[in-house]
Amino acid sequence: MSSILNLTRREIYSYFVSPIAYTVIIMFLLIVGLGFFFSVFLYSSLNDTAIAEGNQNIRTYVIQFMSFWVNLALMLALPALSMRVLSEERKNGTAELLMTSPITTTQLVLGKFLGTLAILALMLLLTLPLLITIDFWADPEWPALGAAYLGYFLFGAVILAIGLFASSLTENQIVALLMTYPMLLPLWLSELLLGRFSGWANQVVGALSLRNASLTMSLGVIESHAIVLACGLMFLFLFLCVQVIDSARWR
């Protein structure tokens, strides 16, 4: 465990002595902030009957609307964080240090993954001031918000796991970035295929829809299916990542 945390510490250190983390976090906050003010603005333009008919208070309205923006911002920002994690080690020759040290590949991957998760957690924490402003207008219902944030975190973690896997495939960060999206988007867009198949195929498509899972959570519902899906995907991509590093390609 201390080996893992040692790697995690170094990962976080490197993020904050180079401009990457700052750039990514600022970009993320800009998009989320934009979405937030957009949704508050839209809500204020609704008339009373619309609010009553939709049975919406400002919290459900804003959070629901904002979730789209948070997810979008995560999808844009996180691959830019994960792209360098493993490809840069290989390019700089530090992979040779890591892989001739007494740590296992699993420890290496977990240590790096935890490092990126820490940045994700920080990013989400930095959006809290926005929510506190809701407190002025309505009861933010913190438990429901907690569920929404858990959903964001799980969604982000899946993106990072995919990004880490992509990063293990190439020495080139940009290639890693570009490979992350084609793996991520089908999971996001599979919802569009819902209803186009029948029977079990339709169920599989529905079950794999990361977007569905994430949006359900953002409504304040902790859904076991969403958690299982996210953890399953994380496990899958981290496992693949370990396999790639252990294979001959890396040496």
Binding site: N6, R9, Y13, S14, V17, N92, G93, E96, L97
Partner: peptide, 30 residues
């Protein structure tokens, strides 16, 4: 690997790190 120290052909350094932090990291790694 816990018995060897290895300096590979291109020194395995992280350019962005401070010397002391880097060596601390290596101490943990080893």
């Amino acid at each position: 690997q816990s018995r060897i120290g290895y300096l590979c052909e291109a020194p395995p350094i992280y350019r962005e790190m401070v010397v002391k932090s880097y060596l601390k990291f290596v101490a943990g790694l080893k």
